[in-house]
Amino acid sequence: MNKLRTDLLIAAPGFLLLMVGFLIPVAGILLLGVRDANGVLTATHLSRFLTDPFYLEIAWRTVKLSLIITALCIVAGFPLAYIMARGSARLRLWLIISITLPLMTSVVVRTFGWMVLLGRGGLIPDTLNMLGLVRRNYSLMQTETAVVLGMTQVLFPFMVLSILGVVMRIDIRLEEASRVMGCTFLKSLRLVVLPLAIPGVIAGSLLVFTLSASYFITPSLLGGARLPVLAGSIYETATRTLDWPFAAAQSIILVVGVLMLLIPYARLSRRANG
């Protein structure tokens, strides 16, 4: 009993912060989005979003971009995670530092770098122009490509780290055994490492998808007003039009939408785990 009281006392400031700073505000949002001015349950705000083609397009763009970004992260992330896991400790350390640096840099700074690279007269459009692929003064800004590139750079480390955690635990003897049994190197990657790394790929995908669906600074700076995404729309609604119930409703749609996509996926992960 005494021990429990000590533990409760130690955790008390944490509980207070969690209540005031997190649980109450989040619960508040969930309530605000489904109630009218008199506190009566209503679906007005939700249906306003779900019936307006403008907002549906925003939702669709959010899902589409997040899917593309997640897929890119898997494709680019799996080989890196494998190389990190099987390379020397030194190589692994430097690669981890390389991918955590953008992760720990402010999102505005990272995005600014992409703006310089992708904008008119930037390195990438100029190179493409030199190759004769695009006209002069071409800009990649305000395109979905720009959003995808910028977001992939930021979110890719999450994918790599969660795959890395799983691949590090795969016994290297399994790969050796498969080689002895007649697999080429690439076949052993496909038939042994990849199936066993699936839980990491799934965990990484969940993380990347959720984060990319809820980022708004990178999409709004690189995609601009012409390419609004759901999170950006929440921000605009909350700070420009100050329509908080509608912003709350959009938040609910974001959370529910992400959950609806994630729950079947998470179930898949449980099956993959056996």
Partner: peptide, 20 residues
């Protein structure tokens, strides 16, 4: 020759059975 091109088989200390 890489292992896959040698006509051999091996039992590992940890058995190395493919868990999936």
């Amino acid at each position: 020759l890489p292992p896959e091109l040698r006509d051999i088989a091996m039992v590992f200390q940890s058995y190395a059975l493919l868990p999936h």
